[in-house]
Structures are given as C-alpha cells and as structure tokens.
Design a protein around this nucleic acid. Structure first.
Length: 594
RNA sequence: GCCCCUGUAGCACAGUGGUAGUGCGUUCCACUCGUAAUGGAAAGGUCGUCAGUUCGACUCUGAUCAGGGGCUCCA
C-alpha cells in the first residue's frame, strides 16, 4: 500500500512539479536576495536542487524565509509560460540582467537547437528545457520541503567557482511528502553506521585516525565468514592463494604508473620528511596489490601451460582518501580487497572474463544481493589520462562488451569511468540513502603486462605477452559489509550471523544446563553464547531480539529434564519452534550453517 | 581538499555566563520468574582539544581535531 502512494503520481508529472518547484525556489531566492546570481536547477531523484552564486552561504534561517517566499509564490498562482526564444535576442537580455552563469549555459546550447525559457508570471524567467506544470498554483504548498544546503562547484569543476546549492524534495500531495520523509527516517535506522554501532561490529577511534575501522570480534567473524566463503569458491575455480606484504618500494609503483598519478594519495613509510629521498629509496603502504602479484608471476619463466594463472589474496591496502570523502565503511583509508589477478593468453581472455563474471554473479546470489547495476566503465575519448594505445583499449573494451552481451545482463556504459590502465565492468549498489557505490569489479588490462614486461613462452617457443584481468567480487570487505548491513537491516543470514544462537536460562538456576548445551553446540561449530545476566527471561529475549540473534534457545525446568531446548527463531519462514530435543535443533540448522 | 551543520557519561539526548542532568547500558543488592523492559542502590563526564574575551565559560569568539550532508576525487 505504502509503495503505491509515492508511485501514484506519474513520473512525468513529478518531473513537471520538480522543475517548477526549482524555479519557484530560484525566484524566491532572487526576490529575497536580489544580488544572487542563479545558475541551474534540475529535477533529481525525489526532488530538485538549484545552484546560486552568492557572497555569503545560506544559513538555516535563510531557508525558512525562502520556504515562506516560495509558498507565497505558489499561492499567487502565477501562470507558467513556455516561450521559444531567439538566441541573439536572449543573449542581449541576459547580458542586461547581468546573469553570467545563464549566459554561459545559453552559449553551451548547440547551434540550431531550440532555446526555451519558462516564465513564472510576467517577469521572472529561467532557461529550461522543461517540462513544467501550467501554474505555480498547481503545486501544493505543503508538498515540498527544502532539505539541505551544500556547496557545489560550477560545472562540477573544482577549479571553478563554488556555488551554494539548495536541495529540496517535492511531491504532488502533502501525504506523499510526509510518507517520503517518514521513509527517509526509516531508512536511516538501517544505516550501517548506526547498526554497526548498535550491533557492535566495528568502531572508529580518534587515537587511531579517521577512515581506519577497528573490527570487533563480531565484525571480524563476519569478515572471516565472507572470506572463507569466497576462498572456497575460488579454490574450486583454480585460483592460487598468495600472500604479499603491506609495504613496498616506491619504484614498484613508478613502474606501474600509480606513483605518477596517485602519489599524493599514498601513505609514505620512510623518508616522508624528504620527498627526494622518498622518490629514490622510500617505501609506501601498498595502495593496491597488483604489482606484488605481478612480481610473483615474474619470479619464474612462465609457460603457456601454466596459464591462466589466477593469483588471489585478501590484500589490505591503504589510500590517503580526501578527508571530506571519508564516511562509515563505504569510503575508508585502509581496506581489504578480495583481489585476484589473472594472467591469461590473449586467446583465453574472453572465456576467463566470462568465468570471472560468473563467479561474481554467483557470489551476489549467495549474498542475496539482487539490486545492482552493471556499468561498463570505459575511457573518455577526449581525455589523455589513460595509458597505452587506442587499439589496446578498443580490444579490452570490446572484450567486456562482448561478455556482457553474451550474458544478456542489463547494463549501461559509464564513459570516463575507466581505470587509467584499462576499462572495467563494475557492479554498482545503492545504500539506504540512495547513494551508489561500486562493489564488484573486473578489469581488462594490457598496460601493466607491458610496463612490467611480463612474458610467457608460447607453444611455438616464442616469448609472448600475457593479458591481465584484475577482479574483486566484493570490491572491499569494508564496503561490502556496510552494504550488507543495510541490505539485511542487521539481520544477517544464519551462515553469516556472528552469533547464531543465544541460550537463555529461564532463571539462573539453569545457567549450568545452558552452559552444557552451549558446549555441545560449539563442538559442532555453531556460534552460540549464553545470557547469564541476572535479568528476567523476558528481558533477555528482548535483548536478543534487539541484538538480532537468529535463534533464541530458552531453557528451564522442562528442558533441563529432557535434554531439549525451547526454540524461538527470528528467521523468516523457519518452522522450528517450541520445545524440541537438542539433537533435533542441531539437525535442523546444520545443513545451512556450513 | 572545498562549503555548510554538529561535537555534553559506553549509547541516545536535555540544559544554563556562576564550575552539570534524564533514559538505556554497566556494577551491586533483593527477586528465581516460561517467550520483547522486576524493583532498589551505586559507579561513571576536566561538557572534543587548544587559545582568547570575561571577576568567572560547558555556555561568547577564534583556531584545531573528529563526525554528518553535499561538491571534487575514488588505481
């Protein structure tokens, strides 16, 4: 039912409402602050924003005044009029208005394209392709809200002026707005930062530093279970585990090309006080694992018979991410990549690529992650930041395109999203606040084999260059767990739950029996604990519910006498409940707990 | 890195220019209880940090650190 409320309005109608509301916002701002230059105000998911150039930032009080003015404009029921304008004439008009951003936008519209403006009433207008509603009176003054102020760079360029952006949300009815805001509040309860704290999975410490999560016993259990799961999958698919150090010589990253591009983002290990010395003989924390795996590959002369060689490692890497970009587990400075590098012959590339995608999809399937988008991250042809020949890039991009088509997987192309050494296939997930994050990734790379002069001996005895595939189904354990916490709302499936069962003695007289049950279950590798707190049973159940423990095993007089447990399950669709012999409980959960 | 907001006990939050409170949690005592909160008591904070204004600051100002929302970035 509630799903229908926000969808009861057709998308194009919401689009109109949001366009017009953003114009009402801009008009209100210019009424209140006439010196403010306006730029652009598109509709976005759930709402709109508008960018303003103004000497001083907006403060919360400004927002209140702006909102009032917007309501006034709505109540004035100003007609919204679309007008096609002549380019030269409009250019003159904008120059007179002294709106430099508008001028730039107008000049950015290609010749020959229709130029439209929308009027609110007789005076105020803005460049816009539309569509809009036909009158500000069509807007419900109770159905929009200004949600936040933020800074944004003009045209998304950090070198250009910083503008003040006001975000808002707009709907057709007040009920929809209320429902939307309620859902946002609901979503925040699933935020992995909140749940991670409540469930005691990870912490941050000022003494350690920003972006460096500390994993508690429970959080570490989840990490281990995820790693075990993937490790097994990989061993079955011919991957070879390797282990490499956390630091390495700067030279390694000069060869790979990362130093030149990312040196500001690396943690220096030695000689950090002297950049010249660091350049020459320094060590850095590894920002990625590839050069290390490459060195293992290079440690011997390789035959085509050894390929594909798939070197895998849960490698923890360190990147000095910009301070403003850190957040929760989704962007951190130290994280563990479920990395593997596949060294393949050119002939093997397509098949290996498909196998990797197959692995990734089966991993997502096991984790019940369904809601993802596949992005073909290709180079931006206009940029010169990429290494290697255009031909190599074409080959790599085509390999990815072919694989995706073969799998008939829904996908989209992200131009300019490639790594500097090669194109990627990325798997994108959303967090509870609708922000998108990349988890899994597969990358085809012709550059690093070249730069590190990798070879193998082909059938005909000649030396050939292998192709590399970089891949990480999880992306990073940190980010994956962040997304999983939100996906599951803290209710991890039994196989991932850090504590699978909590034994709850009815009174402390049965603590002994509870302990003996725990020992038996632990012998079967079940993760159990006993609640020996001096509380009433009801309280313990409540606590276990809040801790999101899948099974509560209540034990008292009856159970102690019959070697049984009273099962209370939080698992959806689980039929087991009430008093059952301990052995029955064990049989019940064994198959799914491996 | 840039803009804005926030920073009070383990957690969630009140609060005032005259050196601090509530709930949960923790510990202790009593209760010995059958599927989402038993009652009582106690411990716990130099109010993020460092300066400044002031007779006096947790409360005002500045800087700094951390967190949050965006922007830029994301090998």
């Amino acid at each position: 039912m509630t799903t229908d409320l926000l969808r009861s309005t057709p998308p194009d109608q919401l689009e109109r409402i949001r366009h017009t509301t953003s114009h009402v916002l801009a008009m209100a701002v210019q009424r209140l602050f006439p010196e403010t230059k306006v730029t652009i105000g598109p509709s976005i998911k759930d709402g709109f924003y508008y960018d303003f150039d103004r000497a001083t930032p907006f403060i919360p009080d400004d927002l209140k005044r702006i909102k009032k003015e917007m309501i006034r404009i709505v109540n004035q029921k100003l007609p919204v009029r679309r007008e096609v304008r002549d380019r030269a004439e409009l250019t003159q008009e904008i120059i007179q208005l002294n709106e430099p951003y508008k001028l730039e936008l107008l000049q950015g519209i290609p010749e020959g394209e229709e130029i439209t403006v929308y009027y609110l009433g007789d005076q105020w207008w803005d460049l816009c392709a539309g569509p809009h509603v036909s009158s500000t009176g069509d807007l419900d003054p109770k159905a929009f809200e200004l949600t936040s102020v933020a800074a944004a760079y003009w045209r998304g360029d950090a070198q250009k002026a910083q503008l003040q952006r006001i975000y808002g949300t707009a709907w057709q009815t007040a009920e929809q707005l209320t429902e939307y805001l309620r859902r946002q509040e609901e979503a925040k309860k699933r935020d992995h930062r909140k749940l991670g704290k409540e469930l005691g999975l990870f912490v941050f410490s000022d003494a350690v530093g920003p972006g460096l999560p500390l994993w508690t016993p429970k959080g570490t259990m989840i990490r281990m279970l995820l790693q075990d799961f993937l490790q097994k999958e990989q061993l079955q698919r011919g991957y070879l585990p390797v282990t490499t150090p956390h630091i390495g010589r700067v030279d390694l990253f000069k060869t790979s090309g990362h130093w030149q591009k990312y040196k500001e983002d690396m943690f220096p290990m030695m000689a950090e006080d002297d950049e010249a010395r660091l350049e020459e003989q320094g060590f850095v924390m590894k920002p990625m694992n590839c050069p290390f795996h490459i060195q293992i590959y290079k440690s011997d002369l390789r035959s085509y018979r050894e390929l594909p060689m798939r070197l895998a490692e849960f490698g923890t890497v360190y990147r000095y991410e910009q301070s403003g970009e850190l957040g929760g587990l989704t962007r951190v400075r130290g994280f563990t990549v479920d990395d593997a590098h596949l060294f393949v012959t050119p002939d093997q590339l397509d098949a290996e690529f498909l196998k990797v995608v197959d692995l990734i999809l089966s991993v997502f399937d096991k984790l019940a992650l369904k809601d993802f988008k596949a992005r073909l991250s290709f180079r931006d042809p206009l940029s010169d930041k990429y290494l290697g020949s255009s031909e190599a890039w074409d080959r790599a991009e085509n390999a990815i395109r072919k694989a995706v088509e073969q799998l008939s997987m829904p996908h989209f192309e992200g131009i300019g999203e490639a790594a500097f050494y090669g194109p990627k296939l990325d798997f994108i997930f959303s967090d509870v606040l609708g922000r998108e994050w990349q988890l899994g990734t597969v990358q085809v790379d012709y550059q690093l084999p070249e730069r590190f002069e990798l070879e193998y001996v082909a059938e005909d005895g000649t030396r050939q260059r292998p192709v590399m595939i970089h891949r990480a189904p999880f992306g990073s354990l940190e980010r994956l767990i962040g997304i999983l916490i939100e996906q599951y709302a803290g209710d991890f499936p039994l196989w991932l739950a850090p504590v699978q069962a909590r034994i709850i003695p009815v009174t402390d007289q049965f603590n002994g029996y509870a302990q003996s049950i725990a020992v038996q279950l632990q012998k079967c590798n079940l993760r159990v604990e006993v609640d020996v707190s001096p509380e009433r049973m009801n309280k313990k159940i409540r606590t276990a519910e809040k801790d999101k423990i899948p099974y509560m095993l209540v034990v008292g007089e009856q159970e102690a006498q019959s070697q049984s447990v009273s099962v209370r399950s939080r698992i959806e669709g689980d039929l087991l409940s009430g008093s059952v012999p301990l052995t029955e409980f064990m049989q019940h959960i064994m198959p799914s707990s491996s």
